[in-house]
Design a binder for these strands. Structure first.
Lengths: 327, 327
DNA sequence: AAGGGATGTGAAAACGTTTTCATAAGCAGC
DNA sequence: GCTGCTTATGAAAACGTTTTCACATCCCTT
């Protein structure tokens, strides 16, 4: 039933070595190559990738580890990563960690057992701190969240600048009591908060920072409470797309209009952010570029293992919409 | 450098067979099992999954093939599939086909070479028609689009009923000149169109059907043209989330309000559909359920290969919102 | 005390490839 | 015509596991 390379060899009247070479790139005479190809067609042979990997010690596989593929940022990045992977003849193994350090460790171990070619990883802050390059026999490229400068290549947004950009924009639009709600698990959120804080300080304004699990529901709850307080801010900076959505829901539920009741500015130019009325001011991340760059770094690292560690920092673009219209 | 099972065996003073059994489920005395575990810790041993797969002839891997992971429907389904896979100790290989029959064929071939345990697949109509169960040595479960009854298990929405449901709702709300815009590549879109057509006929109304590539941009262009026509419909049925978004953009761009200028009703209860104002009437698909059911079918099929083919049909739920408010 | 079924263990085969190694054939230079 | 170099090919080793098979050992039954 299961046809192997021996069957093809027999059908073509050659050795298995020749079949292997004909299918790969070895030197084979044209005549035999044709015989082999005919035999492959005749037998319906499909190579066994596990055997190939075992023998050739090359998995041709990329692992992608993210918190949740349903976060549109990761969705978009994953598509770019998958495209690059398959263009290079590699498969993609997808892992969702749910921001859970234990599952992160589990999946990293799995990647070792798979002997993957490389991994693209968006770690939680906690895990990012513990990541030691010498523990991994493959290139590990961090995206979105690199944490403190470590031994891994990475692609990130200039989060500090982006956080500040939002504050500057809000100040310019006439707001001064500006709150910030940031995710609690990633270094990215921390950097955005730092940018927020330094910009607030620079403008001589009093920051109000809160922290929340970076998901829509917790964010909605937190913002709902915040908006119900007597001295609520005039404007809110939200540190990612899910938190921004939570904030929009909370404002909508409380019947507070934006920008009149509360100005909103956040991250991730998701398709819906310009469909709500008024549209939401956001920092757009170059998502496709991030995924593509990560794969470039990964392949470069494979070629030049001893090259110094590189960190690609991409700029976010401010898209000003009605949600932060001048007071 | 690379530590294998032989090194562990040597360190523990046992045979490789015993190590394998200690790590698996074979019968091993408690004393030896502890020795082996200690040796594993001491050596930092990580099993080589390729070797394991080759020998045990079991890949413990699920393939997921969809048009585009960025379609929120597939995003959500993929998450459910991944969860189920990893709960069963399996990995997930992700493939995006971009609705391209050639890439579908390519990936199906790849799945054979990977000797995967099973595949969850949302095929284009063209491919669905050609799918022959005997060509696949693994269970292939179709989701979202099963096409004509074939030899594969599947999980689908009751698309005909759902399409009709939207028409019934629109009629009830007082609309009669109702157009329908449907995707051109999937059997799902066809079924929704059939539901639309039969409901229109039942109500004695004249259907107006158009077809478009199931992506936001082509849909926006098509709807823009449609809305510019003199005898444009009063209401539109849109056959998936991306097409619905295109329609919303077109209406917004043309300055046509809904439901006043054009009533909108579509598929997929994506998070943004109730954030636009007024909210959009949609059919909600049980996305998580679809993914989970697909994996259930897959595992059942592995257990009972000769069981008759099963097709799970799930009902969509109508969520009526302002976009179809009474005329 | 002998027979017999569990039970635990190790040696070696097996999984399906690629790669190494040896060899034969072809060809250039002398 | 011989040597040396390249090229095409096959036999066999190798990749790192799991599984088969054979063999002790132990305990229970008779």
């Amino acid at each position: 039933m299961a046809v192997g390379i021996r069957d093809v060899a027999r059908a073509a009247g050659v050795s298995t070595a020749t079949v292997s070479r004909a299918l790969g790139k070895g030197p084979v005479s044209d005549a035999l190559r044709e015989q082999v190809e005919a035999a492959v067609r005749a037998t319906g042979y499909r190579p066994n990738l596990s055997a190939r990997r075992l023998r050739s010690q090359s998995a041709q596989t990329i692992g992608l580890i993210v918190a949740d593929i349903r976060n549109p940022f990761f969705t978009a990045v994953s598509r770019a990563v998958e495209d690059a992977a398959y263009r290079a003849g590699m498969r993609l193994i997808l892992c969702n960690t749910g921001e859970d350090a234990e599952r992160e460790a589990l999946y990293l171990r799995l990647m070792q057992e798979e002997r993957v070619t490389g991994v693209v990883f968006a770690p939680t802050r906690r895990t990012a701190e513990r990541l030691r390059p010498e523990d991994f026999p493959f290139p590990l490229v961090l995206i979105d969240r690199t944490g403190p400068p470590g031994g891994h290549d990475g692609v990130v947004l200039d989060n500090v600048a982006a956080g500040a950009l939002l504050v500057d924009h809000l100040v310019e639009q006439g707001f001064s009591r500006i709150g910030g709600l940031f995710g609690s698990t990633s270094s990215t959120a921390e950097e955005r908060r730092d940018g927020y804080l330094s910009a607030m300080r620079r403008h001589g304004l009093a920051p109000q920072v809160r922290t929340v699990l970076p998901e829509a529901e917790p964010a909605e709850g937190e913002v709902a409470r915040w908006l119900a307080e007597a001295d609520r801010p005039e404007a809110l900076v939200l540190s990612n797309g899910l938190i921004l959505m939570g904030a929009v829901r909370a404002a909508r539920a409380a019947g507070i209009p934006w920008p009149g009741g509360i100005a909103l500015a956040g991250f991730d130019n998701e398709p819906w952010t310009d469909l709500v009325e008024p549209g939401l001011t956001v920092i757009e991340q170059p998502v496709t570029e991030i995924g593509a760059q990560a794969m470039d770094l990964l392949f470069d690292r494979l070629k030049h293992p001893d090259q110094p560690v590189r960190k690609v920092v991409l700029s976010g673009r401010l898209i000003a919409r009605g949600s932060t219209a001048r007071r």
